[in-house]
Amino acid sequence: MAAHALYRLQASTPISRSDCRRPNPVFPPPSRTLTPHSLHNSWLGTTKLLLHSSNLRPLKPKHRFIISIVSFSLPTAKPERVSSSDKIPKWSSKAVKAFAMAELEARKLKYPTTGTECLLMGVLIEGTSPAAKYLQANGIALFKVREETVKSLGKADMYFFSPEHPPLTDSAQRALDWAIDEKLQSGESGEITTTHLLLAIWSEEKSPGHKILATLGFNHDKAKELKSLSSKPGFADG
């Protein structure tokens, strides 16, 4: 009888739309503040967690614009050139790339310094300059230079790590300065190219780079031929 009365009471009570929209009192709305909670683990210790809050801003990826600055002046042993750098012709982009590849090759071979042999490999790794194409046309390839380098200088200790920028050897530094002087003495405008760099390596007769070139068939006649080709009008070596 009591159950029948309860059923009649529930059936006769109208349910409004507002009642349907009321939140369930058992589940209160989330707080807008952060509440710290702790989790304890015997290995990790106690870790504090923060509950999600609706007032937190969504994480947005931060876009970082990377600005690369390329220097077109390679190291020089003559400090007076630094103060008058505006009068010194700049190195071409291919020559700068060849120099960067030379440093990288020195690191790959685990050598402590960047020598003329590495500068020679840098020219060949760059690969698109007239100097590189001239070497390739005369049978002087990168793998041959690398083999001759290992034969001449030997393998480095496998546990040795080269510095990020292996310093130049004395002969390699003289080669860079020779290329600058050669460009200045010519009185021609334009940049210092990989052709100047290759001829500079050849000018260091006691250096490993010169000896490797001679072993692979490069000689004074080829050096003169390359120099004459670079002096012709319309010659481009970027």
Rank of each mutant, 00 (worst) to 15 (best):
L104P: 14
D177L: 00
R57G: 13
F235V: 00
P30N: 14
H52Q: 09
S230N: 06
A77W: 00
P112M: 07
K90M: 10
H52G: 15
G122H: 11
G190V: 14
S83H: 13
T194W: 09
R8I: 08
R146A: 14
G234N: 01
T47S: 14
Y7I: 15
L197Y: 00
V123F: 12
H37W: 15
W202H: 03
E191M: 07
S228I: 12
S228Q: 15
D86Q: 11
Y7H: 11
L184N: 01
R64D: 15
A236P: 13
P166I: 00
L135N: 02
Y159E: 07
G234K: 00
L56S: 13
E225I: 08
L216P: 12
S38Q: 13
K211H: 07
C118Y: 09
K97A: 15
L135T: 02
P163K: 05
K224C: 13
E188N: 06
G122C: 11
F72R: 06
S71V: 03
L59Y: 14
A3G: 05
S162A: 09
L34D: 12
P29G: 10
A3C: 07
D177N: 10
K60A: 15
A3L: 13
A11K: 02
A5C: 07
E204L: 02
V145Y: 04
L39P: 03
P166C: 02
I69C: 08
K110N: 01
I66R: 02
T169F: 00
L39V: 06
F143R: 06
H63T: 11
K62F: 08
H165C: 04
K94Q: 15
T46C: 08
H63P: 10
L197P: 07
S12E: 05
D19K: 12
L34H: 13
K232P: 00
W178G: 07
S53H: 15
W202S: 11
H220C: 14
L74Y: 06
A132H: 04
G122N: 03
T116E: 07
E182Y: 09
A137V: 05
W43D: 14
H37F: 15
P28D: 08
A5R: 12
T215G: 06
A95D: 03
K62I: 05
I212P: 01
R107C: 04
P130A: 05
A156M: 04
E117M: 03
L197I: 08
A95N: 02
S12R: 10
T195L: 10
L199Y: 05
S93Y: 08
K133V: 10
L226K: 00
D181Y: 04
A11E: 05
G122P: 14
A175C: 13
A236I: 11
H40A: 11
T113M: 05
S152E: 06
E204N: 09
I180P: 11
I66A: 11
V70I: 08
R64Q: 09
P58T: 09
T193D: 01
K183C: 06
T33K: 10
R146L: 03
V123L: 15
S162P: 09
R64H: 14
T13M: 12
N24W: 02
D221H: 07
S53Q: 09
T149Y: 04
G190F: 11
H37P: 15
K155V: 01
A214C: 07
I192Q: 00
A100Q: 12
A179N: 12
M121D: 11
G139L: 12
S83R: 13
K48S: 15
T33F: 13
I15N: 06
A156D: 00
K151S: 05
D19R: 12
K110M: 06
S207L: 01
D221A: 12
K151W: 00
